[in-house]
C-alpha cells in the first residue's frame, strides 16, 4: 500500500493545446499533497493524468513519465484499467451509482473483472470500507437503500468508501468538498487525516484554508502565460508555502492578491 509517485517532465495536451507544461514532482507516500491554483491552470488535468483518467476525453495525449514506485504507468505494456485500480479517484461531485444500493456501491469496484468473493468476505469488506470512510454508523441499518438517497456529504464519503474498498495505493481527490456544506467538509477533512496513515493522498482544492489544514506538502500551479496552459510554480512544505513562499506569484495568490 501507499506508494510514492515520481513525475518527470509531464506535458498534457488537449489536441494541439498544451494544458500542462513540463511538470516534475515527487509525491511522498503516507502524506497529503495539495494542489492549489487559479481555475484553468491545469491542476485537475494534471491530477487526472496521474491515473490516466484524462484518456477518457478524446484527443488528449501525454508526454513524460509517471512512476508509481518503480512502475512507469505510461509504459507500453501497462493497461490503464489496471492503473486506475491502483490509483483511485474521488470526484468533485459525489457520484454514487444511482441504481445501486449503498452496499452494492461499496463493492462495485471489487466486483469488477469478474472477481468473486464469498458473501461473508464481502460483508466484512463493506463494513471495513464504510468504517474507513466514517460512514458505517450512519448507514449500517440501511445498506440496501439506494446510495443516491444519502446527503451530499454522506454520498461523498460513500464514494471514498467505494474507492478504498479496492485497496488502492494512491487516492486522488479532485475538489472533493466543493459541492459540500462546511460540516460535511469537516467530516471529509477528518477522514483525509485518517486515511493518510494508509494511503498516498493527492487533493486538488480551491479552498486554501483546506489545503493548509489537511496537507503536508502543497504545490502551487499557475498559468504560464495568459491563454497558455498551466505549470507548476512552486512546491514545498505546506507551512512554508503559506508563510514564506519562494516565488512572488505564490505569495500573491495565497494572500488573495489575485486568483
Amino acid at each position: 500500500m501507499a506508494k510514492r509517485i515520481d513525475v518527470s517532465g509531464l506535458n498534457v495536451y488537449y489536441g494541439a493545446f498544451r494544458a500542462v507544461e513540463d511538470v516534475s514532482m515527487t509525491i511522498e507516500p503516507r502524506s497529503v499533497t495539495a494542489f492549489i491554483g487559479p481555475s484553468g491552470c491545469g491542476k485537475s488535468t494534471y491530477l487526472r493524468a496521474l491515473n490516466r483518467m484524462h484518456e477518457v476525453i478524446p484527443g488528449t495525449r501525454v508526454e513524460g513519465k509517471v512512476l508509481l514506485d518503480d512502475q512507469d504507468i505510461y509504459a507500453a505494456n501497462v493497461d490503464p484499467v489496471a492503473v486506475r485500480g491502483q490509483i483511485g479517484m474521488v470526484f468533485q461531485r459525489p457520484n454514487p451509482f444511482p441504481t445501486m444500493s449503498i452496499y452494492d456501491n461499496v463493492i462495485a469496484g471489487v466486483r469488477l473483472n469478474g472477481r468473486r468473493m464469498p458473501k461473508a468476505e464481502l460483508d466484512a469488506l463493506v463494513e471495513r470500507a464504510l468504517r474507513g470512510a466514517n460512514l458505517w454508523n450512519e448507514v449500517k441499518d440501511r445498506l440496501n437503500r439506494p446510495g443516491a438517497g444519502l446527503s451530499g456529504g454522506q454520498q461523498q464519503r460513500l464514494c471514498i468508501a467505494r474507492a478504498i474498498a479496492v485497496r488502492p495505493d494512491v487516492l486522488l481527490m479532485d475538489e472533493p468538498c466543493s459541492a459540500l456544506d462546511p460540516i460535511s467538509t469537516l467530516a471529509i477533512e477528518d477522514l483525509i487525516a485518517e486515511l493518510k496513515t494508509e494511503y498516498t493522498i493527492v487533493i486538488v482544492t480551491h479552498n486554501m484554508q483546506q489545503a493548509a489544514r489537511v496537507s503536508e506538502t502543497t504545490a502551487f500551479f499557475n498559468l504560464s502565460a495568459p491563454g497558455k496552459g498551466g505549470m507548476l510554480v512552486e512546491m514545498g512544505d505546506t507551512n512554508k508555502i503559506f508563510t514564506n513562499p519562494d516565488k512572488k506569484d505564490t505569495e500573491n495568490y495565497i494572500t488573495g492578491r489575485f486568483g
Binding site: 483518467m53 462495485a108 469496484g109 469488477l112 479496492v166
Partner: peptide
C-alpha cells in the same frame, strides 16, 4: 459523465 467516470476510476473496462 460523472457516472461513467466513477466506474472507470474504479478500474472498470
Amino acid at each position: 459523465t460523472m457516472h461513467e467516470e466513477a466506474a472507470l476510476a474504479l478500474g472498470a473496462t
